[in-house]
Amino acid sequence: MATRLQEPTFLILTALADQPRHGYGVIQEVLRLSDGRVQLRPGTLYGALDRLMADGLIAVEREEISDGRLRRYYHLTDDGASLLTAEAERLARNAAAATERLHRRRQAGLPLPGLFALGLEH
């Protein structure tokens, strides 16, 4: 997949990177990973899960019925892990490049408004 991942998709794959999770678990983990910014609605989540399964990036690992509720646990496939790795590296390179340029800007004596808020000042 050559196209850049949308943030919710990136966060869903990240939520499944370390362990299988069911739908509600993914919603909670995405909320945690995004510091409360991205709250997936169940309808949206399952649309995304369907697309990711169709692309072979995630798969259903097991099903459980607990308190009369059906829960399917999803895990990241090898293809999903490769894509997530590539995307994380791309984002890390972009962040590193931005940090370096901002560092040069500061060395040149140019103002960096909001620097503390961005967490770039060390």
Partner: peptide
Amino acid sequence: ELLSTLLDSAPANRTWPPLADAVD
């Protein structure tokens, strides 16, 4: 499965779906 996730997301005392969930 979708119904289970919706119910998991809802507080115990909720009786009506939130508008955002309904629209979604």
